[in-house]
Nucleic acid binder design. Structure first.
Lengths: 344, 344
DNA sequence: ATGAAAGCGCTAACAA
DNA sequence: TTGTTAGCGCTTTCAT
């Protein structure tokens, strides 16, 4: 099957190399022949074979996108399709394709990465997660293979290109909002503690609390899974304390839903009894009850920019290491309210 | 860069073709040499170049996954990462890679498909949506290119391999559940009306209503977008009717959240005032208030099976057209309750 | 401005 | 059981 460059060459009465040049829009080919060749291509329904092309130029015009392993339900987070959409937009623009590795366990993810890299399937990789001591990251660094992280690397921050929000600042701002509303007992519920994003958001929270000279008991940091049971445990523990919090900084909208649900089971309601703030501004956070006060981290933009960095880098070896901080914007909605007398 | 098959051959003292055979685990190579070659591969850190391989065998060991265009927010539906996970699981097992096309507008999606197909980037395609008069589907059929649909084709049902649930039956069962609970005024809220899935679920609903000899006023079918405003419009209209429904069959969990939210704004609550049933059993539907009575359509399995069909097909031209119906299971939770006196 | 020819790294007849 | 050789379809020197 398949009409090749030779067929086109024959039909247009030129050499294959000329056809190749026409494809590349080489300026040293006369407009005359270009037209003739293009017509031949069209008539024959010619489409370049990418495997052949890639073999010849040793590149693949494709980038790999690595999702975290899906031991938990984290992958059901709409965050992923949304970054993917951002990445896809830039990739499409530049005629790159997207290879994705979707979860499985950690080992499988690693295997996928190795397949992509070793098999020359992709020119670069985007990591959709960042955590401490990640063998994948280590592998990529050792190979000197181009990659960018959506999020912030835990180590070697200056040698890795990454696209992130200022999570520390955002988290601090969120916490301060609660403080401004009169809350004095504010707890933090984060995701997996080895994720950089959790660490940063926890730090921002801590900073704000300290600066306001509020108490910061160790029992006020909880880590919940996205899974219901996990979230419930965290909330139950928190609200069984002598002084339960009246304000919550939660690291992810999806977790907030679980938290609100558990609160209701405990007979507490949001925002009357406890104010909740969180992160991501998923489409969902606008339509639930109550709508969430949350940080819009611009997921799409995170994806778009990461693709841009990576593709620019694969096109130009000299492109320097970059750090791109995507601005965030807090959406104030109904999950937070001024602390009223009875709770003080 | 890159150590090639020749290097390995030289080091092992054999011909390149022998190395190739070892890679393919050809049975006519002595165990002796296999071992020697494998050692050489390991010592040299050899990895086959897939572009070269694919060029030689005219295949790519990759499948394309096409998401719907993302004009709306539909892509934020956790359905997608979840099917992707299922597809990825089977793909990984069989050492296939995944190419994805993520949204953009319809034209861009189509371009992506053409790129994948014409450029020999993939051996087959999985369509994650199905709707009437889809140019992509048409293109694939004309080309005779292997593809499978997650969902049900609108035309040429017998010539296309697809993986779906029995949506008609599920929807009927859901509706009957409401009827059994005493509801007599049941409305349907679907997604985009050109999607097959919407059509099927609407039909199941209608059938149940008719069989129970209940009324079926035209105003009882609403179509909502995933976007909040759309869902709100539908709900507001429905509940402004002379006889507002007390039961709802909603085509997607995500839409149900919007519906519940709008209801609350109207001063109605679920399940006290209106019972809601829906589809998908997203992780979310379990943790919100109230937890949803919803059809578990086994999203992961839909993905897994579609990948299986497609990969089996690409491996064997003779593989017949298939239809796979993944069983569903209704999860009864708290969004539905017996109609009490006051609402009759 | 264009052509000839040598690869890119691998597979697959065909020989031996 | 293994080696030789001719491609797969494209790009890219090097000539002309």
């Amino acid at each position: 099957m398949g009409v090749t460059i030779k067929d086109v060459a024959k039909k247009a009465g030129v050499a294959p190399s000329t056809v190749s040049r026409v494809i590349a829009d080489n300026p040293r080919i006369s407009l005359e022949t270009k037209k003739r060749v293009r017509k031949a291509m069209k008539d024959l329904g010619y489409h370049p074979n990418f495997n052949a092309r890639n073999l010849a130029v040793r590149s693949s015009q494709a980038i790999g996108v690595i999702m975290p392993s899906s031991a938990d339900k984290a992958l059901q987070n709409p965050f992923f399709p949304e970054v993917l959409r951002g990445i896809g937009a830039y990739a499409h623009k530049t005629e790159y394709s997207l290879y994705v590795s979707t979860g499985g366990n950690e080992e499988e993810v690693f295997e996928e990465v190795k397949r992509m890299v070793n098999g020359n399937r992709v020119d670069g990789i985007i990591l959709l997660y960042s955590r401490i001591a990640d063998p994948v990251q280590q592998f990529l660094i050792e190979k000197g293979f181009p990659f960018v992280i959506v999020g912030k690397p835990q180590e070697q921050e200056n040698e890795i290109t990454y696209v992130d929000n200022d999570n520390v600042k955002a988290s601090k701002e969120l916490t301060n909002h609660l403080i401004d509303l009169g809350h004095e007992h504010i707890a933090f519920i984060g995701g997996a503690p080895e994720l950089t994003v959790t660490i940063d958001r926890l730090n921002g929270y801590k900073t704000a609390i300290k600066e306001a000279n509020l108490e910061l008991p160790a029992e006020y940091f909880a880590h919940a899974e996205f899974l219901k049971s996990g979230g419930r445990d965290a909330v139950e523990q928190l609200f069984a304390l002598d002084i339960p919090p009246t304000g919550l900084v939660v690291a992810d909208d999806l977790m907030s839903f679980g938290v609100i649900s558990t609160l209701e089971e405990l007979g507490l309601s949001c925002p009357e009894d406890v104010s909740i703030t969180s992160f991501n501004n998923l489409y969902l956070s606008e339509i639930t009850t109550p709508p969430l006060t949350t940080v819009d981290i611009q997921i799409y933009m995170l994806g778009f920019q990461s693709a841009r960095c990576l593709i620019e880098r694969t096109k130009n070896k000299e492109e320097p290491v970059k750090r791109i901080i995507v601005p965030y914007e807090i959406q104030y909605r109904q999950s937070t309210k001024e602390l009223d007398g009875k709770n003080r």
